[in-house]
């Protein structure tokens, strides 16, 4: 797929924390990335790594007990105008969301209002953003067709009349109705069946090609990320520990955590395979480990990992924060050569 260098969303040093009774939980720590036009960025990691908190921070819909501590989020409109997302007033933010950055929430079953028809959801959305009924309907029908749904049937249906896969596609279509440049998706194919997942992925790829929007894709599923992402970011304990082009990250990973995730994922095309779990469990973020936060679970860890936070190394578009990136690269090469 084509990717030009126009950045649409640039996030720098974003940190977000929850204020819990026991103390401050920094769920997102110093995250930076540039999202280009038409690019799909997949953020992968275990539950509790801060994926969903990052999501909510990006659209500024964080719970009252949380705060965005620092960072900047710069959004560039189609006209080239810069918007400082963190400085938008509530009214401006309401207009900004959905029309510039849209969100597809996890669990399609619960994301649609069960007591109103899809049609009314379409009209409500249009009305809130100053689009008349006829135009809203026209756009919705066109999008439903693009996600391979029967447009009129779906338009007049209540959510319960649709299957899980259809609902997920309705959400996908609705997220695009105001023509946003960026769509954030939280586990869009988790909990759906294999064939349903396949049809959602195909539809997503087609839409992306036709409309050229960018995607931030949050998932724990390496296989789905391998299929649709241009860029992969691995997230651990609130940080992006590695980020790079999809093939680099899969075939040439340089962070021990990325490697461990790859070593835990079974693949159909390989016969009998040797897989390994990651020992221990994700750290308590109220009192995170010193040095590299992964060191307690890492097979490569040495003294330096305990004491020193690993600096970010950059190699073109590939960046990583691991003291033993060379060892990691070597081990992956050995596994792949076998």
């Amino acid at each position: 797929m084509t990717m030009n260098q126009d950045v649409v969303f640039s996030v720098k040093n974003l940190s977000m924390s929850y204020l819990a009774d026991r103390g401050r939980v920094r769920a997102v720590n110093n995250v930076s990335f540039d999202l280009h036009k038409g690019e799909t960025l997949a953020v992968i990691g275990e539950s509790g790594c801060g994926k969903s908190s990052l999501n909510l921070s990006l659209i500024r819909q964080i719970p009252r007990t949380a705060e965005i501590e620092s960072g900047t989020m710069d959004y560039i409109t189609r006209e080239g105008q810069h918007i400082d997302v963190l400085k938008l007033s509530p009214a401006r933010l309401r207009k900004f969301l959905w029309s510039e950055v849209a969100m597809v929430f996890q669990g399609a079953q619960n994301a649609l209002n069960p007591v109103i028809r899809i049609a009314d959801m379409v009209y409500d959305t249009g009305k809130a953003h100053g689009i008349n009924k006829a135009e809203s309907k026209k756009r919705a029908l066109r999008l439903f067709e693009q996600v391979r749904l029967d447009p009129m049937r779906v338009f007049n249906a209540y959510p319960h009349e649709l299957s899980g896969g259809m609902r997920q596609r309705v959400l996908l279509a609705l997220s695009l109705i105001l023509r946003p440049q960026v769509v954030i998706m939280d586990e869009p194919t988790t909990g759906v069946d294999i064939l349903t997942q396949r049809s959602i992925l195909e539809v997503l790829k087609e839409l992306r090609m036709q409309l050229n929007f960018s995607i931030i894709f949050i998932s724990h599923d390496l296989a789905v990320a391998a299929e649709i992402a241009d860029t992969i970011a691995t997230m651990y304990a609130g940080e992006f520990v590695e980020m790079g082009p999809v093939r680099q990250v899969f075939y040439n990973p340089r962070h021990a955590y990325t490697l461990s995730l790859l070593n835990a994922a079974p693949r159909l095309s390989v016969g009998e395979e040797e897989l390994h779990s990651i020992k221990g469990s994700p750290p308590d973020l109220i009192d995170p480990p010193s040095g590299c936060k992964f060191h307690e679970r890492c097979n490569f860890a040495t003294d330096i990992c305990q004491h020193t936070v690993p600096p970010i190394e950059r190699d073109g578009a590939h960046q990583v924060a691991c003291h033993h990136s060379d060892l990691v690269r070597k081990e992956r090469a050995e596994v792949l050569n076998k």
């Binding site: 294999i194 064939l195 997942q197 396949r198 992925l201 195909e202 599923d221 390496l222 296989a223 789905v224 391998a226 299929e227 999809v246 093939r247 899969f250 075939y251 790859l262 994922a265 693949r267 159909l268 095309s269």
Partner: peptide, 20 residues
């Protein structure tokens, strides 16, 4: 056959060359 051809694989080259 349909199921196996539809499953994404944790390997970018293989999963992108699959034909569902």
């Amino acid at each position: 056959q349909a199921l196996l051809s539809a499953v994404p694989e944790a390997d970018p080259s293989i999963t992108r060359s699959k034909e569902p």
